[in-house]
């Protein structure tokens, strides 16, 4: 587009006239405007995250200990899956830029192939993110929450490994917990969803098991969470008011509640961008298939969605660093 400066005869309204100080078409400039404003939105989110983190710098959850799962595998794999997601997104950025390149040489077949690969990459990323959300919401070990909203987690007194509340709790048969369910004809209207184990069950289990102690949110000099001695732990236990399993916008078994809130907002907002990017890519993909840009004489539309797609990748690079690494 930029090399075919139009004559007055076919000057169209949106072409921006003959003078193009930035040497870019209207569409591309508008995409850049959008990207700049969207970048500011994302940086506001990340800066707010930084604010909350600096405010609670001593008690912030350690991401390595939160994101340790890989689908189909059991064990402790910190960061591996997020690194894989990052690689998928960079890869789909590469196929996008190859599609743009093929568009410049008017090679329709190659544009189709690379657009398709880009869409697949984006879909894998969104799917992975959905899985990660599900894992995060479900939680793994469970924890106790104190009156002040702080989290107490259980660890093995010798190895320091985490202990799940399900291993710990002694189930109390006298507790006849009948929860309202649709089959019983009583609708659950308000109040908190009961946890799998009650606070009493976990507490009695803890007192009976000498090999378990409590880990608090506070980060010590070594950059690790503080592990209490058995006596301190028993004293601390009286502060606990409820059992927390998994994470949501109100409670978070991994630590600070704000961590979960920002996780949902930032990765959610980014995931929404990826999702819309995939949708836009699909539209453009079909346009390429039916030859719209072949007829138009140039593939600038592919270039414009490409800019958006790369921007989504660019944002992820920052989210990855500030949420998972730092």
């Amino acid at each position: 587009m930029d090399s075919s400066i139009s004559q007055h005869a076919d000057e169209n309204l949106w072409g921006g006239g003959d003078q193009k100080p930035l040497n870019a078409s209207y569409g591309k400039l508008m995409m850049w405007f959008f990207i700049v404003s969207d970048a500011l939105t994302f940086s506001a989110f990340l800066a707010a995250y930084g604010f909350s983190r600096f405010k609670f710098i001593e008690t912030w959850p350690i991401a390595d200990e939160v994101f340790t799962h890989v689908p189909f595998f059991h064990g402790n794999f910190p960061m591996y899956y997020v690194a894989f997601m990052t690689f998928v997104l960079i890869m789909s950025s590469v196929t996008m830029v190859l599609a743009v390149d093929a568009g410049h040489s008017m090679n329709k077949k190659k544009v189709v192939l690379y657009m398709l690969l880009t869409i697949i990459g984006g879909a894998i990323f969104v799917g992975s993110q959905a899985w990660e959300w599900a894992t995060f919401i479900k939680g793994d070990y469970g924890a106790l929450e104190t009156k002040g909203g702080r989290i107490l987690q259980f660890v093995d007194i010798n190895t320091g490994d985490r202990v799940a509340i399900s291993e710990l709790a002694i189930e109390d048969p006298s507790e006849t917990a009948v929860y309202h369910s649709s089959s019983q004809g009583v609708w659950f209207e308000s109040g908190e969803k009961p946890s799998t184990y009650s606070l009493e069950e976990v507490t009695s289990g803890f007192l009976a098991n000498e090999a378990v102690t409590i880990r608090t949110e506070r980060i010590n000099e070594e950059g690790e969470k503080t592990v209490l001695s058995r006596d301190e732990a028993i004293a601390k236990l009286s502060d606990a008011v409820r059992v927390v399993e998994g994470a949501n916008l109100i409670r978070n078994e991994y630590g600070s509640r704000l961590f979960a809130d920002f996780f949902f907002f930032i990765t959610g907002f980014h995931g929404f961008h990826v999702f819309s990017g995939v949708m836009i890519n699909i539209i453009i993909f079909f346009n390429v298939l039916i030859g719209t840009y072949e007829k138009r004489g140039h593939y600038e539309m592919v270039e414009k969605v490409g800019l958006y797609w790369h921007f989504v990748d660019l944002v992820w690079v920052f989210v990855f660093t500030f949420f998972y690494l730092v």
Partner: peptide, 8 residues
């Protein structure tokens, strides 16, 4: 490098 080379 993403901005300079992928976003041209």
């Amino acid at each position: 490098y993403i901005a300079w080379d992928f976003m041209h």
